[in-house]
Design a protein around this nucleic acid. Structure first.
Length: 596
RNA sequence: GGUUCCGUAGCUCAACUGGAUAGAGCAACGGCCUUCUAAGCCGUAGGUUGAAGGUUCGAGUCCUUCCGGAAUCACCA
């Protein structure tokens, strides 16, 4: 049992015995002792003072005495103000070390026998290439999936591709009008980039038409509706929903281009899915469910034919579910996909990694599912994350400030290469090894930079300055790992085998104990990040760990330590740290490197 | 206008979910390589946590008001 839970459980009993008063387990608060004080764990005494009507110092002292006596792991205590600081015996930390130091799965749990957890992320539109915003989404979804899996959940990663709708029609229309048959083969462009170019072209021409109409006296609003291009796009959407051969043919072809492009980008990011849904295949089911809802009087139809949900009882406005012409809207297909997902996986939880701009949408979705009495309405969870902004504000495609995912990864790799070369780190490496290193360092830096921020917060990203390779970054952590491996490479083979016995307790140095304490925390960190669906917990933890190791490494010799017993211990301590660094970085989707 | 979220060092982020003197990195300044990788280590400086009230033994964290910013309230997705 974890020592912290042990203390939490024993404290109410101790208080009962000492003062004959019952305290709620919830009032027992135990935290790690802050570095500036002596001790390993701290019991906060204040909550008891009211019930016990004694001074915090008094209570702390009495509790400390009993804990030292009754809990064999506790060596000593001190009381400062209302805080009881407990110091554990060195044996406790060393025992922990012996038990776990060679366990490459340390911190991860056996799979739980339970229904799967479905994580939906990425969910791109097929009219444009992926950009910085998608990167955060993809990295979050991927990392959360890894964390949940490590915690023991049965995770299914799914992607819902928005492959239908007016946005695709815009790209298609522009291609038909001005494309002159251009294809990825004929232009040498990535398919998603090519299709994105036509989307931009459409928007440009559309805007021209709008301003012409405004000049001729129309309001902006009216002009946006009346422009020839948008009318044609809408007609195309209708044709598509009616299965028009010509339109469907172009649609299939252009989507195929996009998928090929996306695959390259996903691959590069190290992201994969267990199942890919296409909106074009789910929206009909959504439409069907909505129609059933109308029959059951859950929803209602207006005279013009549009179908609506009355959400006034839920405190929201009415919501359109089907347009008067029968075509479906965004939320219609989301109802369909939820149903399909339920049928496919019978999940205990459906997590949707979607930006916080859609908080309202998911509110509505949950309420609609509830109205429909869907058994899974409570298992829908919106993992809402904040926007990525540039120093000058939001990314705007019209102003060309959108940071393209492929370009950004190029930039990261190039920067990694420059810095590595500058530091002269590539001696003796083959060209292939170098490329692999640049890729891992550059991509790792990008992933870490994004994942270290609390998902729910907005973040600022400056492509030219944000990415450092020093300090609180992935390269710093990777460097620590490479250092560890450099030591391990030089250690004699027989000194890499697991230890059954370790140094005597009095030999344990402060930095070694601090490192052990951090390693000891890892399972709790996995638990916390899984509970909160927050990779930043892991990111910040592994940074602390790397920092602590670097201090240890600086202060103590590992291989050159004259005391053989200590040297052997330190080799395994380094290797244990390496195992946890690798594991934690793995949860962030970041590959470590042995040399850099 | 309604609703929701955010505001912490010059910049980018933490703060164990209400606990000790608010911590890191970057940028600035000063030290440390003849020794296991200096992408490192050590130090200096930097704060009225947007403002004012309130609740509490205790507030960056909870409540109220105000200021500033963002998202959303689509027959876009």
């Amino acid at each position: 049992m974890h020592i912290k839970t042990k203390l939490e459980e024993i404290l109410p009993a101790v208080i009962k015995e000492l003062f004959d008063v019952d305290v709620d387990e919830k009032t027992v608060l135990i935290q790690k002792t802050r570095k500036e004080f002596e001790g390993d764990f701290t019991v906060v005494i204040f909550p008891f003072t009211k019930i016990l009507k004694k001074s915090p110092e008094d209570i702390g002292k009495k509790l400390g005495e009993v804990l030292v006596e009754k809990v064999k792991e506790v060596e000593s205590f001190n009381v400062i103000k209302g805080f009881l600081n407990l110091t554990l015996k060195a044996e406790y930390w060393l025992e922990f070390f012996v038990d776990h130091h060679s366990d490459i799965y340390f911190g991860c749990n056996e799979p739980l026998a339970e229904k799967p957890v479905v994580v939906e992320f990425s969910s791109p539109n097929t009219n444009k290439p992926l950009h910085l915003g998608h990167i955060r989404n993809n990295l979050l979804g991927d990392s959360v999936s890894r964390i949940l899996e490590a915690y023991g959940h049965n995770v299914k990663k799914v992607n819902l591709v928005n492959d239908r709708g007016i946005h695709i029609c815009k790209s298609m229309l522009a291609w038909l009008k001005w494309g002159k048959g251009a294809s990825p083969e004929s232009t040498g462009k990535k398919g998603d980039q090519l299709v994105g170019d036509f989307y931009v072209l459409f928007e440009q021409e559309y805007r021209k038409q709008i301003s012409e109409l405004v000049d001729s006296g129309k309001t902006k609003e009216q002009a946006e509706k009346d422009a020839q291009l948008i009318i044609e796009a809408r007609e195309m959407l209708k044709k598509w929903e009616n299965g028009d051969d010509e339109v469907v043919k172009v649609w299939k072809m252009m989507n195929e281009w996009v998928y090929e492009g996306f695959d390259v980008t996903y691959n590069r990011m190290g992201i994969s899915f267990d199942k890919i849904y296409h909106e074009s295949q789910t929206y009909l089911l959504g439409r069907e469910i909505v129609e059933q809802g109308v029959q059951r009087n859950v929803f209602y139809r207006k005279p013009d034919g549009g179908v609506w949900a009355d959400l006034s009882k839920e405190g929201l406005d009415d919501k359109l579910l089907l347009r008067p012409d029968g075509t479906s809207v965004y939320i219609t297909q989301d109802i369909g996909t939820a149903e399909l997902r339920y049928e496919d996986f019978d999940p205990s939880k459906m997590i949707y990694v979607v930006g916080n701009e859609q908080n309202y949408h998911f509110d509505v979705l949950k309420k609609l599912l509830k109205k429909l009495d869907k058994p899974y309405s409570d298992s829908v969870f919106h993992l809402s994350y904040g926007m990525v902004e540039l120093p000058e504000g939001k990314m705007k495609s019209r102003e060309g400030t959108v940071v393209d995912a492929d370009d950004l990864m190029d930039l990261m790799e190039k920067t990694a290469e420059e810095i590595t070369e500058e530091l002269g780190k590539t001696e003796g490496m083959t060209g292939e090894q170098k490329q692999d290193l640049y890729k891992k360092v550059g991509l790792g830096a990008l992933k870490y930079f994004i994942l270290k921020v609390d998902p729910k917060k907005n973040m600022v990203f400056n492509p030219n300055e944000s990415i450092d390779f020093n300090g609180h970054t992935a390269p710093f952590i990777l460097y620590t790992y490479a250092r560890i491996h450099s030591v391990l490479r030089k250690a004699p083979n027989d000194k890499l085998l697991p230890l059954k016995k370790t140094i005597s307790p009095e030999k344990l140095a402060v930095k070694e104990k601090e490192l052990l304490k951090l390693l000891h925390d890892y399972p709790a960190m996995v638990h916390e990040s899984a509970k909160d669906l927050n990779p930043a917990v892991i990111a910040n933890y592994v940074y602390e760990l790397a920092k602590e190791f670097n201090q240890f490494y600086h202060d103590h010799s590992i291989l050159n330590e004259p005391d053989n017993e200590i040297s052997e211990f330190r080799i395994r301590l380094a290797s244990f740290t390496g195992i946890v660094v690798r594991s934690a970085m793995g949860l962030l989707g970041i590959d470590v490197v042995d040399r850099m």
